[in-house]
Each structure stands twice: as structure tokens, then as C-alpha cells.
């Protein structure tokens, strides 16, 4: 037994190597296998499963966020388009109503003009007629007066 005497121990000592060494080595190797089966494998499985779960959840969440953002921009675009459309519709409607108003005004004006013209023409023709009548009557009267004067003589 190779012993190195320290602190005056009569047997053994600090550097007393014996079968403790290989037995301890075997014990630690056994412990490694036991801990591998009882501790490292199961805990590793749980931890890695959780890591996978977290990773996939995060990836899914990211995908969902991207989807939401895409939808948001799409909806914003749609909203903008709809606003533009609405403005255009309003503008068109205003233009239409203005046109209709103008058309109606023009129609009314022209109708008024036409009826005024017609009235004027009627008046003219009636006046002419009346004048002609007066003229012919004055002629007749004149002729009559002349006849009568000539007859009296």
C-alpha cells in the first residue's frame, strides 16, 4: 500500500491510494448513466419540447401579426379608395344637379322666349290685321263719304 505519511497518521495518510479509486470511478460512471436516464434525458425532452413550442408559437404569432398588418394596409387602401369613390360620386352628383339645373333653366328660358316670340308675332299679326281692317274701313267710309257728297250734288 503506497502510503505517504502526513500529519503523523500511522496508517493511511492523505495520499492513501487503494481500491477506493477504481470503485469510485465505477460509481461515478454508473451515476452518469443513472442521471442520464433519470435527469438529463427527461428534463432535456421537456425543455426542448417547450423551446419548440415557444418557437413555433412565436413564429405563428409573427405570421399572424404579418397577416394582420397586411389586412390593415389592405383595408386602409380600400377605405381610401372608398373615400375617393365617395368624393367622386358626390362631385358627379353635384355636377349632375348643376347640369340639370342649367338644362332646366335653359329649357325654361327658351320656352319663355318662344312663347314671348309667339305672343309678339300674334300681337303683330293682330295689329296688322286690325290696321288693315281699319284701313279698309276708312277706305270704305271715304268712298261712302265721297259717294254721298257726289249724290247730294
Amino acid at each position: 500500500m503506497p502510503t505517504l505519511f502526513l500529519f503523523g497518521a500511522s496508517e493511511g495518510g492523505l495520499f492513501d491510494f487503494d481500491a477506493t479509486l477504481p470503485l469510485m470511478a465505477v460509481q461515478v460512471v454508473l451515476l452518469t448513466f443513472i442521471l442520464n436516464a433519470l435527469f438529463f434525458k427527461p428534463v432535456g425532452r421537456v425543455v426542448e419540447e417547450r423551446e419548440d413550442y415557444v418557437n413555433t408559437s412565436r413564429a405563428e404569432a409573427k405570421k399572424k401579426i404579418a397577416e394582420v398588418e397586411r389586412l390593415e394596409t389592405e383595408l386602409k387602401d380600400q377605405l381610401k379608395e372608398a373615400r375617393l369613390q365617395a368624393q367622386k360620386v358626390i362631385l358627379e352628383a353635384e355636377q349632375d344637379s348643376e347640369n340639370l339645373y342649367k338644362e332646366a333653366l335653359a329649357l325654361a328660358n327658351s320656352e319663355a322666349n318662344a312663347s314671348r316670340e309667339k305672343a309678339r308675332r300674334e300681337i303683330d299679326s293682330q295689329r296688322n290685321e286690325a290696321l288693315n281692317q281699319l284701313k279698309s274701313e276708312a277706305d270704305n267710309l271715304g268712298d261712302l263719304i265721297v259717294e254721298r257728297l257726289l249724290a247730294k250734288k
Binding site: L6, G12, L14, D16, D18
Partner: peptide
């Protein structure tokens, strides 16, 4: 210091105190 509780196993001697504590702790 340097004293051991020897266990005799066949021709081999081991330090009993080391194994006792290590078994308890393991």
C-alpha cells in the same frame, strides 16, 4: 486527518467513510 475507516473486500481495502457519505449524497 489521513485516517480512514477501512473496509476489507477480498484482497482490497476501501475507504468506508468516503463511500458512506457519497452514497448518502448520491
Amino acid at each position: 486527518v489521513g485516517q480512514h475507516l477501512y473496509w476489507q473486500i477480498g484482497n482490497f481495502r476501501i475507504h468506508g467513510q468516503v463511500f458512506m457519505t457519497s452514497w448518502l449524497l448520491i
